[in-house]
Nucleic acid binder design. Sequence first.
DNA 1: ACCCAACACCTACATTCATAGGTATTCAAC
DNA 2: GTTGAATACCTATGAATGTAGGTGTTGGGT
Lengths: 211, 211
Amino acid sequence: MRGQFVSASDPEVSALMSLRFALLALLSVDAMTGYDLHKRFDSSVGHVWYAPDSQIYPELRKMEADGVVAAEEVPWGPKGTKREYHITEAGRDALRAWMNATLPYARFRDAMHLKSAYFEWASPDAARAQLRAHIAHYEGELAQWEEQIHQIDTATSPMLNRRLAVTPEKDRARTAAFKRYAYEGLVLRAEQEITWARDGLKLIDDLEEGD
Amino acid sequence: MRGQFVSASDPEVSALMSLRFALLALLSVDAMTGYDLHKRFDSSVGHVWYAPDSQIYPELRKMEADGVVAAEEVPWGPKGTKREYHITEAGRDALRAWMNATLPYARFRDAMHLKSAYFEWASPDAARAQLRAHIAHYEGELAQWEEQIHQIDTATSPMLNRRLAVTPEKDRARTAAFKRYAYEGLVLRAEQEITWARDGLKLIDDLEEGD
DNA sequence: ACCCAACACCTACATTCATAGGTATTCAAC
DNA sequence: GTTGAATACCTATGAATGTAGGTGTTGGGT
């Protein structure tokens, strides 16, 4: 019964199916092909929401059937064409409804914290390697987020600039502020995970000394 | 090709399928029925790893077929019986192999941060409601984690005490320390999310004043 | 003796996600 | 003019997840 069709008037249901809303958010800025969307999901935005193209293309078709996006066959070279999707008024309504609804909180699945709770099963070196991988992972994320914030602050962010170009002047400060705010949260999280993992390395050292 | 069967000798593959290892971790302490495991997943551990019983029962059967757990028909009342699962030596090997392998980092899907980046689509009140829900959610988590840590520190944690009872004396300090360490990480994360959400509420207030 | 919550276990179904392939065109470089 | 990377789009399959139901037993309270 649920999830078949998401109407803008059903905020309870519209909190689900975030792939659709991630796509709508990206399309709210720019018309794009499925390939373009996939590339976005593979780079910057991909660290907040990721989807493989095998999920994107079918979802776009469904969204088209539901009327939240419309496709246009655009010539591509001499012979080819490509399908460029743009958001419709119904799509804007659906996005607005999703934004105005409160997200349900799904229960976590956090393999790393599960693992760390049972680290006595690992060799000290394996535990260290896991923690170092954790640090390396979040240091990579951190560098990206900080670069994004830098680009926002220096008005050199291609994504934000595209968005601001289609934003009425009076809302531009808000738009930029929210975008920065989202990245700040990701920076804080990455820093926190790095701190925690470093503490873990210290803990393992201390426990080994104690033997 | 992957994920069909997890052998202890294949560390690359064994990093996947964490439900299996969450179950093995719990069963490494105590023999339990599927119902018991489900209850654990619904309460304390459930905030690190959750699974509905409809996933647990079939997985236990598969694990039994793979030899990582063994079931025992235990009498239950006058007529009934129940299946109590205990970990096997092969299961301990598989758990150890998983613990010694490095987890691959899956790409995020973080609806809240995606949403916050596009908060200009929401009404200020809807954005505030979302942030308050975020705070309420993590305050609930925080209270639970802090209670767990308190129980560890006062040696009144039923879970940890069961675990220490099956742990050789020289490893007890390690076991307790790692368990505490895992919860500390969760506390830090919850605090960080609350801080971020509070900053968001302030940001929305500031932007509204600016109008 | 009966009721009911808790215990125990299970199936079915749809959706979502991950992985692995496939085809064909374009465009720039060699 | 051929090669190859990038663009563009797609299908198939299996695994994981979420949701919704189902059956029956037990054990404590009234």
